[in-house]
């Protein structure tokens, strides 16, 4: 009985530590990577963006047009050539695009394909400065500014 209580107390302490650690870590992560999901950053920025997708081959590049794989909210947020808004920060957009670019790469992995790329232009908080980024899979993103 004592052993059970002791084990239970250890388990509860572990749950507490994990919980506190998760709350703090996710909060700090959201600030560091500008991705307010899971970290309670609310209305920290308003990103207005437009995206396009390109598949790079050894000898050419092709524009990728999204198909039926984008549905509902994913279609609204990730469709190319369309202006969208997000309140969750540029880090969230990078995460969405990174995942989707990898999806494009995996599903179009024919001979000669080097990588898939998402090109995004965006403004933050309605400012005039237009920024751009290239997010590649399987390579890292390449950030730039017009």
């Amino acid at each position: 009985m004592i052993a059970v209580c002791y084990t239970m107390r250890i388990f509860l302490n572990a749950v507490i530590l994990l919980f506190v650690l998760a709350v703090v870590t996710l909060g700090i992560r959201s600030l560091l990577v500008n991705d307010s999901r899971y970290g309670w950053g609310m209305f920290a920025s308003q990103t207005d963006y437009m995206v396009s997708y390109i598949i790079h081959y050894k000898d050419r590049t092709d524009t990728y047009h999204t198909g039926a794989e984008l549905r509902g909210l994913a279609r609204i947020k990730l469709s190319p050539g369309r202006r969208s808004l997000t309140r969750y920060g540029i880090g969230t957009l990078r995460s969405w695009l990174g995942n989707y670019t990898c999806y494009i790469y995996k599903n179009n992995r024919t001979e000669g394909v080097l990588f898939a790329e998402a090109r995004v232009i965006y403004t933050i908080n309605g400012k005039d400065e237009i920024r751009s980024e290239r997010i590649r899979c399987p390579q890292n993103s390449d950030r730039g500014s017009y």
Partner: peptide
């Protein structure tokens, strides 16, 4: 519009 039958993250 069921997202989970398309691209899922």
């Amino acid at each position: 519009v069921y997202r989970l039958s398309g691209f899922v993250q």
